[in-house]
Simulated scan of single mutants.
Amino acid sequence: MARYDDLSALFINCSLKPSRLPSNTQGLMDVSIGVMAANGVKVETVRAADLEIPPGVQPDMREHGFANDAWPDLQKKVMAADILVIGTPIWLGDKSSVCTRVVERLYGYSGKLNDKGQYDYYGRVGGCIVTGNEDGAKHCGMNILYSLQHIGFAIPPQADAGWVGEAGPSPSYCDEGSGGPQNDFTQRNTTFAAWNLMHFARMLKDAGGVPAHGNLPQAWKDGARFDHPNPEYR
């Protein structure tokens, strides 16, 4: 079996609660974290609500009118990790406002290039974990995974996992009697997602990232057309 002890993973919990309060999203994220840690992956978890992250789509919003911005330091953690997992609760059928802001700030860095000349997120893998007691888990997963792949992350098969309890006021994932920690479908999918993220990160690391042909912005700007069927289009 492959080794994973040279990989690192960053989990960003987009709960509305700061870390001094318990998070149901963290409860399910901990399953994925446990799988990765058992295989030697270096894992770090960040609670986004603990940080002062202003809105915007620029790398550093202090340069755009805000007094403080914790995002640049968090961005360094994103870039240092082989795996990024975003966790969110469901509110009104959608990802949390904190999660939306995290995705926006990730997008603000998407124009940067790596040493090969590709977009800088290339070579990293992304996944998500969703919890709630209302409909919307698949909607949130589609939104987050689309956003991650759009800016350059590789998305493995079954890279999302979620738990949704009974609709309406009902026990949340970590509450006694919720059934979440005993739900075979959720526990299986969370485990599979963790392994698929590790597998893809292993393959990309061993391959030196995504091949740098056909995806270089500057080369396209300079006139390369990478086998486009009509290279003289106007």
Rank of each mutant, 00 (worst) to 15 (best):
G127L: 01
V164I: 12
K205G: 11
A161G: 07
Q75H: 15
Y107L: 14
G136H: 07
L7T: 04
V130E: 09
G27K: 04
Q58V: 14
F11C: 02
V31D: 00
K77F: 04
G162E: 05
V41M: 09
D175I: 04
E44W: 07
E134I: 05
Q149W: 09
P229K: 13
D69M: 10
Y233S: 15
V102N: 05
V164G: 01
T186W: 01
E44Y: 13
L28V: 04
S23E: 08
E166Y: 11
G162V: 03
I12A: 09
I90H: 08
I90Y: 05
Q187N: 11
E52G: 00
D175P: 00
S8T: 12
G27E: 03
G180L: 09
L148D: 03
V102M: 07
A70I: 10
C140E: 10
V210E: 13
N196P: 01
T45P: 04
V125K: 00
A194E: 02
M29D: 00
I90T: 12
V78P: 06
E104P: 06
N215H: 12
P89C: 12
A38W: 05
L21W: 04
N24D: 14
P181D: 09
Q187A: 03
R188A: 11
R62G: 03
G152M: 11
L21S: 07
L148Y: 06
G127M: 01
A161L: 00
R188P: 03
P171W: 14
P156T: 05
A224Q: 11
E134K: 02
S23M: 09
L216N: 10
G208T: 10
G141L: 01
R3C: 12
Q187W: 00
T25C: 02
T88I: 08
R188N: 12
M29G: 02
C174H: 13
Y121E: 02
D206N: 15
G27A: 12
I151G: 05
K221V: 09
A194W: 03
A154W: 03
P231N: 15
I155G: 11
V43K: 03
G132Y: 05
K76Y: 12
L148Q: 06
L7A: 04
M36C: 14
M29S: 04
G40A: 12
V164D: 00
K42Y: 12
V43C: 14
D160S: 13
S178K: 03
W71K: 09
G162I: 01
L145P: 07
K116H: 13
P22W: 00
V78T: 06
I155M: 06
M198F: 02
P171T: 13
A224Y: 04
L92C: 10
G87N: 00
A81Y: 08
A154S: 15
M36I: 09
G152Y: 09
S110Y: 15
A212K: 09
Q182E: 15
D120P: 00
R202W: 05
A49Y: 02
R225K: 15
A154M: 12
E104L: 11
I155V: 15
N196E: 05
G209E: 02
E44S: 08
